[in-house]
Computed example of a mutant assay.
Amino acid sequence: MEQLGYFILRSRNFILFVLLEVLCFYFIINTNNYWSASFFNTSNAYAARMLAWSNAAREYTELHRVNADLALENEQLHAQLTRLQQGAPAAPAAYKADSIFANRFTYTVAKVINNTTQFANNYITIDKGTDDGIRPGMGVISPTGVVGKVKLCNRHFSVVTSILHSEFLVSSKLVKADEIGSAKWDGVDPHRMKLLDISRYKPVNKGDSVVSSEFNSTFPPGILVGRVRGVGVQPNQTFHDITLDLATNFSNLSFVYVVENRLQNEQEQLEKQVENEK
């Protein structure tokens, strides 16, 4: 306290000068219309800029919550879209899917906490496990396309086999040509895949969509796998050499949806029984 008093005493002339300057500035602003308007315009401009910075900072800190809310909303939209598509598939007018079949797919949103793209066999870790109803074999998709399939689970986490895996095949359909094939990663570029087993006599064009087919029990049909990037034909081969641009960008994967096919076990058991009887 003694030092503060000594400082004020020593700087009394400077402090008096500052107070007089502030007083003069106050009188100028309040007695002159021009300077008053200039002051308030300038102060408002700086205040608006500070508010803009403050709002931008607050919005940035809330991005995680906003992304989580959007992921939950997309989960609900995916479920509604799948029910509509499965309830009225492309079939003769006399056919009508029963409600259990139309509602067989359910979705659980999860956050990606680890993800690799640089290996021949890549995996993804998500923050949902058996306590959230996740189990091995479930499909995983992103807001833009196919991601992979659940491999291992514990109570709170799951490891997903990425489609960027040397042994992962996705039963896929070339939409425009209405042709079924298999999408497989060649281990080179994490943004590209190969589409196999498409006859060279089928028309294929750059930009054609490739989606998950109806002939798998893991993914809902119609989930985008990618779009045709290039088409070629190898000599003495009966199939196109097709390269796809992947629909999912694995380099910035944040939220995914784990897909449960509630009729998967029933379907696979029946098909296995048929195979055993052959």
Rank of each mutant, 00 (worst) to 15 (best):
R262C: 08
D98K: 00
V150T: 07
L84W: 10
G129P: 03
N265H: 13
A177L: 05
E271A: 13
E21F: 13
V66A: 14
V258C: 06
F157P: 12
S172M: 12
R200W: 01
T161W: 09
S43I: 14
R104I: 06
K202S: 07
Q267V: 07
A48R: 08
G232S: 10
N205G: 03
T42L: 12
H165G: 01
V140A: 05
Y107S: 00
V210Q: 12
T125E: 13
C24P: 00
S212A: 08
I141V: 15
E73F: 05
I8N: 04
L270N: 12
A97Y: 05
R229Y: 11
G187K: 04
K173N: 04
R49W: 10
F39E: 01
D132I: 01
L51T: 05
T218C: 13
A57H: 14
H64W: 06
N121C: 13
R200M: 07
E260H: 11
Q118N: 14
G133R: 00
K96R: 10
T108Q: 00
I124W: 07
R12A: 05
R104N: 10
Q237M: 10
I113Q: 10
I15S: 02
T116I: 03
D245E: 07
V188A: 11
D178M: 03
L9H: 10
A177Y: 06
V112K: 08
A97C: 09
T238L: 09
F250E: 06
N30R: 04
S43V: 15
N122V: 08
E260F: 02
R58A: 14
K151P: 09
I163A: 12
Y123S: 08
T238M: 06
S171T: 14
D131P: 00
A88K: 14
K202M: 01
V258I: 15
D208I: 11
N276E: 10
V140D: 07
Y60S: 15
E214F: 08
V228G: 00
A102P: 13
N103W: 05
N249T: 11
D127M: 03
S212P: 14
Q273D: 00
V147S: 04
T161E: 06
K176Y: 07
T248N: 09
L63C: 01
S142E: 09
A71L: 08
L23M: 02
N13I: 03
R135T: 05
V188M: 15
S251W: 05
G230E: 02
S162F: 00
I126K: 09
D69P: 05
Y201A: 02
V112W: 03
V211D: 15
E260T: 10
H156C: 03
R58D: 12
G137S: 02
N74R: 15
G148F: 09
L63K: 01
E277T: 11
W53R: 15
R155S: 07
D178F: 07
L196Q: 09
Q273K: 00
N13C: 04
L246P: 05
T144M: 12
R83M: 03
S182E: 11
